[in-house]
């Protein structure tokens, strides 16, 4: 599996099929990227579970924080890890002990641990690294185009009208896949030099 660039169909199938997402490292502080992503994904209809031992007893968008993945009382489809690359492996090891295990491990923008990815893939999980599910959802639905972002998708169909809580169609025609060639190259160079 090439983790430098992802085919859009790979990301699309994940975002179209997962229903519940546990966010490890979710923050109740409303300027943190994890808060942005949690809120956006909850508003787009995903069943979100905030995981952060430092905030047990608090709620995020009405969802109570849990201390660890083991404390979640229902099966979860995807684990979105909002931690630095050096903290990924223990989370993946914990995820693999769940029964049933999750279907997807997603590491946030800036986070990458190839050994942890290999371990999860060996157990049959799908892995995404160094991407944000909010950005990818916004991109594949072209909602992010409001910000002048190159969604790398085209459509000749009438656009949906985004309303609160609505799941947008992610099934537009893609081109290139993932990010742009130049930004992928830059990310790869950065990985190789750090």
């Amino acid at each position: 599996m090439n983790h430098d660039a992802y085919d859009d169909n790979y990301i699309r199938s994940i975002l179209n099929n997962v229903k519940s997402i546990a966010m490890v490292g979710a923050s109740p502080v409303n300027v943190r990227p994890s808060y942005f992503a949690f809120k956006y994904l909850a508003q787009r209809g995903y069943d979100m579970i905030p995981v952060n031992p430092g905030h047990v007893g608090k709620e995020l968008m009405g969802k109570p924080f849990v201390a660890s993945l083991a404390d979640i009382d229902r099966p979860i489809d995807m684990i979105d890890i909002f931690r630095n690359s050096s903290h990924i492996m223990p989370v993946v090891e914990e995820a693999l002990k769940l029964s049933p295990p999750p279907k997807v491990i997603w590491m946030q923008l800036g986070a990458r641990d190839d050994a942890a990815a290999e371990k999860a893939e060996a157990a049959g999980l799908k892995v995404v690294m160094n991407r944000c599910p909010k950005i990818e959802y916004g991109r594949l639905s072209s909602e992010i185009s409001w910000m002048g972002v190159n969604s790398r998708t085209l459509s000749s169909k009438r656009a949906p009208i985004p309303t609160q809580g609505m799941r947008l169609s992610l099934n537009r025609t893609s081109f290139g896949g993932g990010q742009t060639a130049a930004s992928d190259r830059a990310a790869k160079n950065k990985t190789e030099t750090t």
């Binding site: 190159n150 085209l154 459509s155 169909k157 009438r158 656009a159 949906p160 099934n171």
Partner: peptide, 24 residues
């Protein structure tokens, strides 16, 4: 739905635009 890169002229006509959600 394959990830195929359209040519420059296709992008010049289509990229960023799609029929208006309200009126078509």
């Amino acid at each position: 739905m394959t990830d195929r890169l359209p040519g420059f002229s296709t992008l010049a006509v289509h990229a960023g635009a799609q029929p208006d959600p309200t009126t078509g």
